[in-house]
């Protein structure tokens, strides 16, 4: 059973399709990246998953069934541009929102203490949310998302506005969740976060799915067929190489598209060239993103 199964959902606002036929699945214990530029339809997709808005067409199954109160209790959701009740104390916020997820208040209070201790914020437990720094507030919001030990966690731009120390703390906690078997959906437009954390991704642009699959597969598909080489000795003519670009300290060799990189390596080795680095270039997700989104421009 998949943690999330989204089937061909469509949503229109004012006759414009904001989400157009999006389908994907997320399994337990994986971090799934939902990526795309601002305004692509990520947040609308998430809201339909959370049953906050209804899709015009298509359906969503969470843990094998459509969303009910029981399944809502098993989900943790961190919305974008978030905040909390400013006048409420940290501990009250955690306990109230956990109890709305069906957690017993006493248990929630105990678990809140544990989590606050984990992020070194136990001394701030009695403070009002408005007295916290922005970064601290965001960490508390993350704790609100996970306090009831959900089996599915949806994070919308969780790293936005976090300093490097808190970002690292958050990253570690996300990985801990994944290792415990929690399904995690990470929605973001920052590709480096996705590359560091995600196993599979769905890329949305203008409401439509433009990429979907394993990150490594996607990367190899979008390989731009070149090799980075650092070496000593004269290269001369190499079979299958149709061009080269000299960079500082290394050369980029462009292949003809039929020759495999290992053929090139063989040729270099037989010529007795000393090789320090030989790397089939894979584009960063950022480059793929720009390439795909750029096509639409």
């Amino acid at each position: 059973m998949h943690a999330v199964e989204v089937n061909s959902i469509v949503k229109s606002y004012n006759h414009k399709r904001v989400v157009d036929d999006i389908s994907f699945m997320v399994d337990q214990g994986e971090i799934f990246g939902l990526i795309g530029p601002n305004g692509a339809g990520k947040t609308t997709t998430i809201r339909m998953m959370m049953d906050i808005t209804k899709p015009d067409l298509g359906n969503v199954n969470i843990f094998g069934k459509s969303l009910s109160e029981d399944t809502k209790n098993r989900i943790g959701y961190l919305p974008e541009e978030r905040g909390l009740y400013r006048k409420l104390k940290v501990i009250e916020s955690l306990v109230y929102l956990a109890s709305l997820k069906g957690m017993d208040s006493q248990l929630a209070a105990r678990r809140a203490d544990e989590l606050l201790a984990r992020v070194d914020m136990l001394p701030h437990k009695g403070k009002k949310i408005e007295e916290l720094s922005r970064g601290m507030g965001q960490i508390i919001q993350f704790l609100v998302t996970v306090i009831h030990e959900p089996q599915l966690v949806v994070l919308d731009e969780p790293f936005a506005g976090l300093d490097p120390v808190n970002a690292e703390l958050l990253r570690q906690m996300i990985i801990e969740l994944r290792n415990r078997g929690t399904a995690i959906i990470l929605s973001t437009h920052r590709m480096n976060e996705v590359e560091e954390l995600c196993d599979r991704v769905l890329m949305i642009d203008d409401g439509r799915c433009v990429l979907y699959g394993e990150l490594t597969e996607i990367k190899s598909k979008y390989r731009n067929n070149s090799i980075f080489l650092e070496c000593e000795g004269d290269l001369g003519e190499i079979e299958g190489v149709i061009g080269r670009r000299d960079n500082k300290g290394y050369v980029e060799l462009f292949l003809d598209g039929e020759t495999a990189p290992e053929k090139v390596l063989q040729q270099l080795v037989t010529r007795g060239i000393t090789i320090y680095r030989f790397e089939a270039s894979t584009p960063s997700l950022n480059e793929i993103f720009l390439q795909i989104v750029g096509e639409g421009l």
Binding site: N73, R82, Y85, L100
Partner: peptide
């Protein structure tokens, strides 16, 4: 207004109907 502005509304609606 505050709940809408600070998006607590979304957390609430992801917990209750």
């Amino acid at each position: 207004g505050e709940e809408k502005e600070n998006r607590v509304m979304e957390i609430l609606l992801s917990s209750v109907s």
